[in-house]
Structures are given as structure tokens and as C-alpha cells.
Design a protein around this nucleic acid. Structure first.
Lengths: 163, 163
DNA sequence: TGGACTATGTTTAGTCA
DNA sequence: ATGACTAAACATAGTCC
């Protein structure tokens, strides 16, 4: 049959999904290569299949780009001018996080903060509050981990990264 | 003129290169989104323009994928790969996270979270929620910044360090 | 600038070898 | 599975506004 209109929805059939994953991953890498070459830019693509396999491409290397990304997104201590444009930006008011591709069937526990209406000052206060909570959470998690030493196979808690 | 065959070589003209970069970056992100959605896979794309601007997309988030990549690639080779458990469907809990952010009456913005009573699962949900809020805040801050300047050439907000 | 257009090249869903 | 094939869907270089 000829190709039908692409419905961007999760493919249920496992084999078919994997086939599509392979094809599209190759296409994605090719696009990334072309972008890097034509525009002389650094680019990295990292994918994880459902099976847990990691596929990554990067120019000049995945690690270079990742490290630079981490450096760029980590808080600069001083006045720094590293532009970060995350492709999840909803400039519209009630921000819906775009990271979840599918959200009709999920029941996420989330805060609903009217961030869009907040001013700079309130945002700064919110940041302070979040830092404090984050500390509580990390302490609590570490407490749980240390109290369940046997079961936990040394998977260290890497740490509630919110950067 | 109509389009000619693509020659994947570095574009010399600066303006044209930037135009192409923008177009292709959008296309690349779109492809990544489709891959993530159709194949239910994790994917991240990070690009740096020559000007040094960072553009990143990730599902469920750039940082999630990056962290998993780091974990997967820096894992001690003994034995097997790291499961990196997750994907657990979020059962709705009564993790009622109360935030008393009330713009009308409240002066202070603060959370009161009974973290000490929470179990690991709830903590994980809380982490997810915090990440989402953090994104909202960053987006909002960047929105404020970019609307104060008429171009995104101004330095964006990269702070909000919660590590 | 930054979109809109559009002719063509490119990608890929479905199928079969 | 893996690879080839085909036609529709899609991406985009060049252009105009």
C-alpha cells in the first residue's frame, strides 16, 4: 500500500515501532550531520529506545556537546552571556510543559503555579522556596537510601538535577 | 529559482548560513519530537550555533536524557548496563502538594511540604513536579527578559540553580 | 529582518523479496 | 530480522514581499 497520512501517535505494534524507530533515528542523525556540516555548528542527538539501548551522534563529539550544554545550563557564577533557548517554550500564559508528548492519559502529580502572572520579584522568591524544598527532598531521599542499604544495589542517587 | 540539489558543504555566507541553521534546526527538532512520540523513546537534541547560542530539545526533558546518557556511558563496565528504571506510570496519589501562592492576598511565596512523611515514589513524583515548575519559571523569566528587549540577543536567564 | 510561497529533493510507511 | 522499492508526505533552498 502506499503511504498514508502520518499520524504522529504512539505505534502500538512493537515490531513496527522498532522498525520505525530505526528508520527515523537514522534520518534524524543524518539531519543532524547535515546541520553541523552546512552551518558549521555543534550538534548532538541522543536517543534511547524503549529497550534501553542508547544511540548518540555528536559533532565534534557527543561528549563535547553535552559538556558544553551542561556548562551553558549550569548557573554561571558571574555575569555570563550564554543564551539558552529550550525548545519547550510556551510563551503563552498557562504554561503547559511540552516535554510530555502525550498527556491525555496521564495523571501526573504536578503543581499548578500561575507562573505566567508572576513578576520578577515573586519568581525570585519562588526560586528560594524551591531551593529549600529541594534540600528537604534530597535529605529525605538520602535518608531512605541509607536505611535500605541491602536492597539498593549501589545505584547512587545522582541528585535531583534541576538545571 | 527552484531548489537545486543539496550540496552538504559549509555555507560561507553568514546570513544565509544562519537562515539555514534556523530552518534546519526547527526541522531537526520536529523530527526528534515525532520520533519520541511515535516510538515512545527518549530523545534529545542539542545544538550550538556559531554565535554560541544553545538550542535544545528533549523528551521527557533534555536533562533527563543527558543524565541518562551520562549514566549509561560512564557506567562501570562490570556486568551489564544500568536499568535506569523509570517509565513507571504515575499512579495518581493524593500527593496533594499545596502551594499557597496567592497573588492577591499573600505576600510571601512559600511551599509547605511534608517531605519527611513521603515515600520514595512520592518523592520521585515531587521531583518531576519540581522540574516542571522550574521549567515554567525559567520560561517565564526568559519571557520577561525577552519582552523587555525586542530581540533575544539580550542575555537570557540561565540561573535558577537548584543543585 | 521575518514570514510566506513553491518547486523539488528528501524522507519514510507500507510492502515484498 | 534486513534490505530494497515506491509513491505520498514532508522538508527546505531560493525567492519575493
Amino acid at each position: 500500500m502506499v503511504r498514508t497520512k502520518v499520524e504522529i501517535k504512539r505505534i502500538e505494534d512493537k515490531a513496527k515501532r522498532h522498525t520505525t524507530f530505526t528508520k527515523r533515528r537514522q534520518g534524524l542523525f543524518k539531519k543532524a550531520k547535515e546541520l553541523a556540516k552546512r552551518c558549521d555548528a555543534q550538534a548532538a542527538v541522543i536517543t534511547f529506545s524503549l529497550a534501553g539501548n542508547v544511540f548518540a551522534f555528536g559533532h565534534p563529539s557527543v561528549d563535547d556537546v553535552v559538556n558544553r550544554y551542561i556548562a551553558a545550563t549550569s548557573a554561571p557564577e558571574e555575569g555570563n552571556e550564554i543564551p539558552v533557548h529550550k525548545e519547550a517554550e510556551k510563551k503563552d500564559k498557562d504554561v503547559v510543559i511540552e516535554n510530555n508528548v502525550d498527556q491525555e492519559d496521564e495523571e501526573t502529580t504536578s503543581f499548578e503555579l500561575p507562573v505566567g502572572d508572576m513578576g520578577m520579584e515573586e519568581l525570585e522568591q519562588l526560586e528560594v522556596a524551591m531551593v529549600q524544598i529541594k534540600k528537604k527532598v534530597v535529605d529525605r531521599i538520602n535518608g531512605i537510601i541509607s536505611s535500605s542499604k541491602d536492597e539498593d544495589l549501589g545505584l547512587p542517587y545522582t541528585g535531583l538535577t534541576l538545571n
